[in-house]
Each structure stands twice: as structure tokens, then as C-alpha cells.
Design a protein around this nucleic acid. Structure first.
Lengths: 146, 146
DNA sequence: CAAAAATAAGACTTTTTTATCTTATATGCA
DNA sequence: TGCATATAAGATAAAAAAGTCTTATTTTTG
């Protein structure tokens, strides 16, 4: 079980962070990304296709091709990747799973979770990939391969 | 996709809250709970078995049997149900899915998520089902059946 | 122009999760 | 005692998610 995001989304987030840590203009192929993140190449490849079609990353076919950020790092946020892969439903659903959870019929943690959910959303949307770059580079350079 | 908890866990939480909203000594059978929560009887029944074996709820077989809280509502917390069904791993994993995420190699949201994760844990563990009772009763009386 | 290397696309397989079915066992009551 | 009605338990089925494979297409380079 993942924490909040699906496996696909986690890998998508990691892959885009990986790309954002590269020097501008540098392209990475699927094999390289898969190797660094320690996930199957075909799987990461498929996820990157999704992100390509939504414009978050760009791709170039053929020899010496690969993937790269599709927009300036200043304009990309983690929430954009989440939105493209898992969608934003989790930011509107009751954490206890009650179907009709709203202000007039709130679940016992409705307000508490509402606050935490908003803060989670902010965590993913208030910083651009450019803002996160130093931490991202540090993480990418210390990837753990078990 | 669920928010944080598996479907089983969500239904387990809802079912236990449902039981905690009953008058003391009142027993509910699986059919009744399934009907109110709008989920299959056999599914809720199976989840209740898990919770029975972990002592969170009690059960009585036979005619007029059913399920009931296995401990005083003052001693039960939402985190106990989560722990019994999904486990507590999600409170130790990186939200972006990085394998070796720790203080010396933190992901770009390591600290932010750490704080939110702790507050989520507190949300689920600082109140007993007794503390939540009024809100729970209100919710149970306003269950939405789509 | 041909070969090599890369992504694109979609079919397919496997694994996990969710849901259902069946049989056994326990309880209460006529 | 026998029947109706519960849960218990485990097998099975269905659905969803994760992962793999194959073929097509594109691009660079010799």
C-alpha cells in the first residue's frame, strides 16, 4: 500500500523530479531513469508517456532521444504531476470513506482532515520544481538502491 | 482510489463508528450494518471478523446475535482500527515513494509531510470513540445512500 | 540508404484488492 | 429436539492495479 498516491503517481513524481535535477537541455532516456529509480524500464516508460501527453514532460524519439521537462521548472509543481496521474479526487473525498460527507453531515474528523488536506495540497502546490531544486539534487544524488 | 486507507479499512472504521453510536448493550447484525453503510453484507461481515479477532469488537453467534464494541468506547481510538486493518506503515513511508528517505537524504517534502503525517496520526489517536460520540451519532443519522 | 537506438502504443500477464459464495458452527426459541 | 437465524471460516470469483512484452515509428549516424 502506498501512502496517498498510487505507485504510478509516485514513480511519475520521482521521474519528473529526476528530470528537474538535470542541467538545462540535458535529456535522459527511460533506461537511465529506470535504473536510477530502481523500477522496471517499461513501467516508467509508460508513465512518462502519460506525462508527455499532458505536456509536463517532453520527449524526443530516435537515437540519443529521451525525456526532459516540458515546461520551465518555475512553472511546474508537484500537484501538476499528481493531477495528471491520480487526479485530484482525494482532495475532495472523506478520509473515512463516508459517501455524503459535508458541512451539514460531517464525519467525526471532517474539520481536522479538511485542514490537513488543505495543507497537503499547499505543500504540493506552493513550491515550483525550481524552488525545490537544491533539495531534489541532494536526494537524486543519494538515491537508495536496495 | 481511496484517500489514505484501503476500502476495507474505511468500511471497518465506519462499522465501528456505527457500533459506537448505539446505546450500550445494543447489538447489530451484519445485515443491518451493511444496509446502513450501503456495502455488501458478506464484505462487511468479513471485515468485522478481522476486527473481532483483534478484540476491537465482539460478536455473538446465533439467533439475535450480532456485533458490538469489544472495549469501552473510552478506550478505543480510530487509529486502533487502522492499525488492525491497514497497519501503521503509512506513517513511516515517504509520501513520494522514495525508498531511502530519511533526515540525511530527505525528499523535497520530507519535513512538510512529516509534520502533516504526525498531525494525521494525532487526529486518529488523540480522541476516543467516546469523545467522538456526538458527531458520530449525527453522522450515522445522516448517512447518504446514493 | 541501412543500421542502431530511442520513444509510442497497445496487447497481454501477473499480482493485489475487493467482493461473493458455500459450508460449518453456535444460539435462542417454539 | 428441531428449526430459524446468526457469525466463522475458508474457498472462489471478479475487478483493479501493476508490470511485461511486442511491434511500430522516429531519429541519428555511419
Amino acid at each position: 500500500m502506498t501512502v496517498i498516491f498510487s505507485k504510478k503517481c509516485e514513480i511519475g513524481l520521482q521521474a519528473v523530479l529526476f528530470l528537474s535535477a538535470q542541467e538545462k537541455g540535458v535529456m535522459c532516456n527511460a533506461g537511465e531513469i529506470a535504473d536510477k529509480l530502481d523500477v522496471p524500464k517499461e513501467f516508467v516508460s509508460k508513465i512518462l508517456q502519460t506525462l508527455t501527453s499532458s505536456g509536463i514532460i517532453g520527449s524526443k524519439k530516435g537515437n540519443n532521444g529521451g525525456f526532459f521537462l516540458g515546461q520551465p521548472a518555475e512553472q511546474l509543481r508537484l500537484i501538476d504531476i499528481v493531477s495528471a496521474i491520480d487526479g485530484l479526487k482525494i482532495f475532495h473525498k472523506c478520509v473515512l470513506g463516508f459517501a455524503g460527507c459535508n458541512m451539514s453531515a460531517p464525519c467525526p474528523v471532517h474539520d481536522d482532515w479538511g485542514k490537513l488536506r488543505n495543507e497537503t495540497y499547499e505543500m504540493l502546490s506552493n513550491s515550483s520544481l525550481a524552488d525545490l531544486r537544491n533539495q531534489t539534487i541532494n536526494k537524486i544524488n543519494n538515491l537508495y538502491k536496495g
